[in-house]
């Protein structure tokens, strides 16, 4: 009988863990927002993290965006060709990139790079009691460490999505020319046609900001709640990456639903 209850028990435990984690993230979120509204955070730390996270991600984001844009064209081409509307290739590839693929893939790559690294750093600091040391020096660790990193993650994701979208569209345009024979001008026209609007761009950017918030919250929460030494840090990094990945897609659905 006990064996039959195991999956149910496992699911219940899983849900309890999920609830606990979300609760912790909520607490961290409120701690961060209180200090944000008071503008109580370390500006130097913010700039340092922004540089570290943003600059180090550029090559990855560029590569991802380039190949993703080109792939979108390859996927959209048969569909627009079927409807005899090759001039709408810009639309076909474009709306996918701006609304979904651009923000999602950029967020996935950045969560893997920046989110994981941030958790590892915060986790190591927690385990080696550096956070406690800050408190002993009467420095608020949240204002000094957490808020700058959180803001840096959100900004990094937002700005990265901005130029990732642009690079993806450029990659798509040239792939369109090379593979489908649609020249970049027609591609551009397809992008600016009546079927697309500024809403598609802003939709994607709003999403990227929300993804940034999700990744930042997950990363900072798991990083500061590490227990159990070096293996615990490893577990926290794992948890961040998984939570970010799942969070991105769950959030994406609800944001898409709400924003239409």
């Amino acid at each position: 009988m006990t064996k039959m209850f195991s999956p149910i028990h496992g699911a219940r435990e899983g849900l309890m863990n999920l609830a606990a984690t979300l609760g912790q993230m909520g607490i961290v979120a409120s701690q961060i927002s209180r200090r944000l509204f008071r503008l109580d955070f370390d500006r130097e730390e913010l700039l340092r993290n922004l540089y570290k996270m943003g600059v180090k991600s550029v090559p990855i984001v560029l590569l991802t965006a380039l190949f993703t844009g080109a792939t979108m064209v390859v996927q959209a081409a048969p569909i627009v060709q079927r409807y005899g509307a090759t001039q709408l290739l810009g639309w076909g590839a474009g709306f996918g990139i701006l609304r979904e693929v651009g923000p999602i893939l950029t967020a996935l790559m950045i969560s893997g790079r920046v989110g994981a690294n941030n958790t590892a750093e915060l986790g190591t600091m927690t385990v080696t009691e550096q956070i406690d040391a800050l408190r002993a020096l009467a420095i608020d660790p949240i204002a000094f460490l957490i808020v700058p990193r959180f803001v840096a993650i959100v900004l990094t994701l937002f700005l990265s999505t901005l130029y990732a979208d642009a690079v993806a569209l450029v990659g798509a345009a040239y792939a369109g020319q090379a593979l489908v024979g649609v020249d970049p001008i027609t591609f551009y026209n397809g992008l600016t046609s009546d079927f697309m609007g500024i809403a598609d761009v802003t939709n994607g950017l709003v999403k990227s900001a929300i993804f940034g918030i999700a990744i930042g919250l997950a990363s900072c929460t798991f990083g500061t709640k590490v227990t159990g030494g070096a293996p615990g840090v490893g577990r926290a990094v794992n948890a961040t990456v998984v939570a970010s990945a799942a969070g991105i897609f769950v959030v994406d659905y609800f944001v898409s639903f709400i924003l239409t």
Binding site: L105, M109, N117
Partner: peptide
């Protein structure tokens, strides 16, 4: 570990 995640993902995309 981080490198593996990033590089594997990039490999998939390429």
């Amino acid at each position: 570990t981080t490198r593996a995640v990033v590089q594997s993902s990039l490999a998939v995309i390429v």
